[in-house]
């Protein structure tokens, strides 16, 4: 291995999935989120808590950075030029960005796990195996999106997050994680599995729209689209194609064009070559009223 070879073929060395001999077939789960329709209502986050047995940690633990929300709404403000030295978090003008695990194709978290508890599935998901995790937290340190959450406490027993009878609302298709385990958004893999089994029983592939993630289902403005990127009929595929965002590129062709395009699709921290599976559609409005 020479340096030139390494540099020139960097994406081949770094890029684990997909490659020509291992294409995504028949599934590659991907998402697109339209920030123009997102109102920052947090319904997706709540739905995620309910679906995935996520503990609500409370204010104290939140302030210690021990929050567990797999789906969080990030807020950004334009610099307030008219009012220099104003408040850090003004009441108005926030832009919202739902942020969860980007299911990177070349995920930085996967390469550093000492016990291979997080790895790639053939359908392009970044899996997290709770019973294999030893809690080194290296993956979280290496995640550029900071979307991995660590169980600092045994929430079900010590903290009694779900006291008796309330534990009846836990989703049986998702593990209740114990202390010392890393967890993150799974693209609602339990729903994907269920749909795949139904499809297999009927001898077909999963239809577009058959799987809805919890966040997508709860979104009042349909900002979130989820589906199979390989399926040319899928809505998510059409959106990615229309926005000319390609999953296996770290620099999109449209960005090279002189004068730019008016396409809104982009992926966060694309230049890090993690190849995220979530495309965001930029907000059209200049700023909020």
């Amino acid at each position: 291995m020479s340096v030139t070879n390494l540099l020139e073929n960097w994406s081949q060395f770094r890029h684990f999935h997909p490659v020509d001999d291992k294409p995504h077939d028949p599934y590659k789960w991907a998402m697109s989120i339209d920030l123009d329709t997102c109102t920052g209502c947090n319904a997706c986050s709540v739905a995620c808590f309910a679906e995935n047995n996520i503990p609500v940690v409370g204010k104290d633990k939140f302030e210690h950075g021990q929050q567990m929300h797999w789906m969080r709404i990030e807020r950004y403000w334009d610099e307030d030029v008219s009012n220099p030295g104003g408040r850090d978090f003004p009441d108005q003008g926030a832009q919202f960005l739902p942020m969860m695990c980007q299911q990177c194709e070349a995920a930085p978290c996967e390469t550093v796990c000492p016990v291979a508890a997080t790895n790639h599935t053939p359908d392009g998901l970044n899996s997290q195996i709770y019973n294999r995790c030893i809690g080194s937290r290296y993956c979280s340190a290496n995640c550029p999106f900071k979307v991995r959450y660590f169980n600092w406490y045994d929430y079900p027993t010590d903290d009694s997050v779900w006291p008796a009878e309330m534990n009846q609302q836990l989703n049986p298709d998702v593990s209740v994680r114990s202390k010392g385990v890393m967890e993150k958004c799974t693209f609602c893999v339990q729903r994907i599995s269920a749909a795949k089994i139904t499809a297999k029983n009927e001898g077909r592939l999963v239809h577009d729209g058959e799987i809805q993630t919890a966040c997508q289902q709860a979104c009042p403005t349909n900002a979130i689209t989820f589906g199979n990127l390989v399926d040319t009929e899928a809505r998510v595929h059409k959106q990615w194609e229309a926005q000319r965002v390609e999953i296996d590129k770290d620099k999109q062709e449209k960005d090279e064009e002189k004068g730019g395009t008016d396409l809104r699709g982009y992926r966060i921290l694309e230049e890090l070559r993690a190849y995220p599976s979530v495309m965001y559609l930029e907000r059209v409005r200049e700023s909020a009223v």
Binding site: D21, K22, D25, T121, P122, L125, S127, I129, Q190, S193
Partner: peptide, 26 residues
């Protein structure tokens, strides 16, 4: 690694059954 799987046939990729952790672990 991609190199190790270089000779893999498309059939091999489509092999049924659990070939990733998430098919059996949740």
């Amino acid at each position: 690694k991609p190199a190790a799987a270089a000779g893999a046939t498309p059939d091999a990729i489509k092999a049924q059954g659990p070939n990733d952790c998430w098919q059996c672990h949740k």
